[in-house]
Design a protein around this nucleic acid. Sequence first.
DNA 1: TGCTATACCAGACAAATGTCTGGTATCATC
DNA 2: GATGATACCAGACATTTGTCTGGTATAGCA
Lengths: 224, 224
Amino acid sequence: MSPRTPPGKTRDQIFRFVRDRLLDGFPPTVREIQDAFGFRAVQTVQAHLERLVTEGRLAKQKGKARGYTLPTGTPERPATFFVPLLGRVQAGDLNAAIEDCEGYVAVQQRGTELSRTRLPQEGSSAHHHHSPSQGALFALRVRGESMTGAGILPDDTVIVRSQPTADSGDIVVALIGDEATVKTLRIQRNQIILQPENPAFDPIIPEPDTCTILGKVIEIRRYL
Amino acid sequence: MSPRTPPGKTRDQIFRFVRDRLLDGFPPTVREIQDAFGFRAVQTVQAHLERLVTEGRLAKQKGKARGYTLPTGTPERPATFFVPLLGRVQAGDLNAAIEDCEGYVAVQQRGTELSRTRLPQEGSSAHHHHSPSQGALFALRVRGESMTGAGILPDDTVIVRSQPTADSGDIVVALIGDEATVKTLRIQRNQIILQPENPAFDPIIPEPDTCTILGKVIEIRRYL
DNA sequence: TGCTATACCAGACAAATGTCTGGTATCATC
DNA sequence: GATGATACCAGACATTTGTCTGGTATAGCA
């Protein structure tokens, strides 16, 4: 029999082990934990895991292999999913651009977008299509210096939530003619103004029906 | 028998399903995939998975439950892992800050950092500690306006690679006294200067041995 | 002393899950 | 038509893995 450890200490180490494995994307089995700690009985591990669950530090799916997870919805591990990084957006055809994207970017669910939570159980249905419907996310590389005043530099990546309208003051991606552009949206007297955040650029007041709002920028990233 | 699908299409959807599940941190079983797609035979799924592996789109651990993983970072789909988001960094004790972090941020491997890949197989050993050793990543929330000129605003999140030194011109996180700060590093005549990117702030020329470079900023994020 | 809680062990059972063998059907190509 | 490739099905088997029952030992406490 292995030497006794102070109450709670082994359990704490087990928790970290499991947590690390979960963050690595590969949940451990009870026997893997057993081996890692050198226990000679599975039950030892299960007792610890059971307590970790009752303490709320872990969640489990009964009977499932590798069924331990971090409790859902905790800031410890927000849901993560992939959004397509679009190369160029041609006139209106967002669907095509999404099908034919440059790659995918990992985005984490944030507090305000609880609506589109995707639980592991729901999964993706078999014939699920990426669609730029209301609420879908995509990523876009920024061109030009028109938004430097808002801390958006050329070559930054913006994460965009598709929506046909936005509030005044939101940073949006709009399609003017054939080109997608990032600007601050201003609405004055029912008129749409696309406002650059750089004194060297002039506001754009698009003719009606020549401008489509693709969505609202919800995140900005820069890779150095 | 279900209707036939065009060659490769079903497989592509299976790949996405598996990939999404992996990013959610819970690899699927073959039977879960089977159910999700409505197949009446497990073998159907396994044939697809086998091909995905030979095509290099998936990797697997033979015989293990939920044994499918994404292959180590291809440029198309870079490896994604979670780095700790530190609350406050107290004097020198980065280890403690990492142990006691606010949460985790999903970061994708980028071209230059091939060195520190952590494979699922290596796993964590039982008594493995997170250590901010050379190359480890962590995230930090930016305070203050001293870097607005570089497009880094208050409350932005920076992703940092731990390293004890950096090149002149790099944006770094440095520990001065008790406080962690983000600045541009300048080295002139063997002297270290921490340069704000905001005319309202003065450069910091730290006394020798009162300044530790925690690491280099490799990514910046802003959530709107 | 007895009681309870904790840490751990031994061995078995049962469910989940990976793997296999052998089949049908459709499509394209020679 | 024959051939090969692909998509799919049916059912079984074997391993992995979760779960259970019953046990020892140590520590703290009334």
